[in-house]
Every structure is written in C-alpha cells, then in structure tokens.
C-alpha cells in the first residue's frame, strides 16, 4: 500500500478507497488516544489498555457477524438476545466447558438459521425477522430460568475469558483467530466473494450462478454463532450469568459496523475496518471514564459518531 496507490493516479480504485477508509479510522483512533494520553497519562498504562481490549473482545465477535449480515443487505437485531440466551441455556444445561461451548455454537447456528430462513425463504424483512427472534428468545430464556438464571461457571470457563497465554488474554486470542478466519473467508475465498457480490446486486449474483438463499442463511448463521461465542466470553469476563447479558450489543454492533465502513445497502465491509471501529467505540467509552466525565456522555458521543460516520461514507459513495 504505497502513497501513490492511495492518493495518486490509481486513487480511484475500489481497494484504494477502502484503504483510505481504514487509514482514516486508524488516524482517528491515534488522535483520540494521543489526546487522552495528554490529558491523562494513565490511559496508556498496560492495565488500562488491556482493559480496553478485554472490553472490546465480546463486542468484536458480534461486530464481525453483524458486518457479514449487513454485507448481504441484512441486519441482525437479535444478536444481544442470542448472547444472553446462549449463555443462559448452555451454561444452565451443563458445567463442562467443552460442552458449554459446543452447545453454545450449535444453538447460535440454529437461531441464525431460523433468522436466515425467515429472510431468504419467507421473504421477511431482516429487521422484522430478527426483531421477532429477539423477542421470542427473550421469552424463552426468561421462561427457562424463571427470571433468575442459575448454573455455575466452571473454572476452565472463567479462564477462557480472563486467563492469559504468555500474557495475552485468552479471549483476545480467540477473537484474533475468529477475525483472521473471517477476514480470510471474506477476502480470499469464493464464498466471501459471493457474499459481497450478492450484497452489491442480488439479481446479478443470482444470474451469475450464486446460491443466493444459502448465502443469506449462512450469513445469519455466522452472526448467530459469533453472537453465541460473544455471550459466553462476556459471561466468563463478568463472572455471572444474566438474562440481560449483552443488552445493547445489537445497537453497538450495528454502530461499529457502520462506523467501520459497512453500508446498510450491502456489499461493503471489512474485518479490519469494523474491528478498528470497535476499538474506537470502546476507547471513547474508556476515555469518558478515565477523564472522570459523566458516563452519559458516552451515549451522546456514540450517537453522534454513528450519524457522522454514516454521513461521511454517504458523501464518499456519492462522488
């Protein structure tokens, strides 16, 4: 990625534009980190940075899934509900870490498949399909727990979310593996290519032989699986199973995906982009705390950032 590719004669290419967006996000992240460090040196302390990363991890999983759904012109409002439901059910059913994760992944895949079926085969708008799933899941897990979730977290499970390998938190390693896999899938496989092309123009994708319905179902399944994983990691991090685990993640994940360059009109999005956006969001939340500002400012900042980012990308795509 040379400067000439970014700003020179080949600056109009689709890739150059994406690279510029990544550069912009990175620059933004550096600027806010620099400002915060100047205001409060404590920000750059290893403890605080590791805190930021750990907070970012569960959201990171969800954002990657959300982005893949957005790429195929979808939207997944059920991710937060999936997080809590998977956590409550799989931890309630068993106390073996392996089984918990296996059940969680299967459950996430199943819920995602239902979302995908409603959208791809029944023609339900993604918004409504996942809204309905969200509400149903909410009922299912409250009914299952009778309002008060139980189940104990096995130690091994806690380790997955809070432990270290050579000083690197296990949750981050897990996220790293997922992110690399997702990036590879999106950029270097036929499947990923078909996902993006479908989002660009579903009719043209169909005419060029893409299995369009399966693409949509699979995207929702990936989102379901990643949301399930995120639920388990978050519960491991917090240490308690709660019926509202992940509350707000549906909107945060949409926000991060949009800030990271995914367009609701489909076809666009990258793993590095949305992970950077996740870091930006979590950093901003952290800064508010570090600087001793009112927590509520987080909301104002987040909301403004969503609209601002969407406006910036909108202007670019119009040119």
């Amino acid at each position: 990625m040379t400067m000439s590719a970014l700003f020179g004669k080949n600056s109009g290419t689709v890739r150059a534009q994406q690279n510029r967006e990544l550069l912009m996000l990175t620059g933004f992240l550096i600027v806010i980190w620099a400002i915060t460090t100047a205001l409060s040196p404590r920000f750059l302390s290893p403890a605080n940075l590791s805190d930021i990363l750990l907070q970012a991890a569960p959201l990171g999983f969800v954002v990657i899934g959300q982005m893949i759904v957005i790429i195929v012109r979808g939207l997944d409002l059920s991710v937060a509900s999936i997080m809590a439901t998977v956590a409550v059910l799989s931890i309630g059913l068993n106390d073996n870490t392996g089984v918990i994760f296996a059940v969680g992944i299967l459950l996430g895949a199943l819920i995602g498949a239902i979302n995908g079926y409603l959208v791809a085969y029944r023609g339900v708008t993604p918004f409504l399909a996942t809204l309905a799933t969200m509400i149903v899941l909410q009922g299912v897990r409250f009914a299952y727990t009778g309002g008060a979730p139980g189940g104990t977290l096995p130690d091994a499970f806690r380790w997955l979310a809070t432990g270290n390998i050579y000083g690197i938190p296990v949750a981050l390693i897990l996220l790293g593996v997922v992110a690399v896999a997702a990036h590879w899938l999106l950029e270097y496989t036929v499947y990923g290519r078909r996902l993006k092309l479908y989002g660009d123009n579903p009719d043209a994708a169909y005419m060029t032989g893409a299995p369009t319905r399966l693409l949509v179902v699979s995207a929702f399944m990936i989102s379901g699986i990643l949301a399930g994983l995120a639920g388990l990691v978050l519960v491991g991090y917090v240490g308690i199973v709660d019926n509202w685990t992940g509350r707000g993640y549906e909107l945060d994940s949409i926000a991060a995906a949009v800030i990271g360059g995914a367009a609701l009109s489909g076809g666009k999005g990258s793993v590095p982009g949305v992970l950077l956006a996740t870091l930006v969001l979590v950093s901003l939340f952290n800064i508010v705390v570090i600087l001793g500002l009112s927590i509520e400012l987080q909301l104002v900042i987040k909301g403004s950032l969503i609209v601002l980012a969407a406006a910036v990308y909108m202007r670019r795509s119009r040119r």
């Binding site: 290419t13 036929v190 092309l197 043209a204």
Partner: peptide, 27 residues
C-alpha cells in the same frame, strides 16, 4: 441484473467463477 456497480472491473469480470483456473473455493 448484470453489473455489480460498486465492485471493481476485475471483480465484475470474475464474478461467475471467482477462483477460475486455480481453485474451486479459493481466490
């Protein structure tokens, strides 16, 4: 239903068989 307007010329060209000539699943 022909063009992928936001995608590059290269991707449009390769859309039917993205991995043509090297691999059925990889690009």
């Amino acid at each position: 239903d022909g063009l992928f307007l936001n995608s590059s010329v290269a991707r449009n060209f390769a859309a039917t068989t993205p991995g043509h000539g090297v691999h059925p699943a990889r690009v």
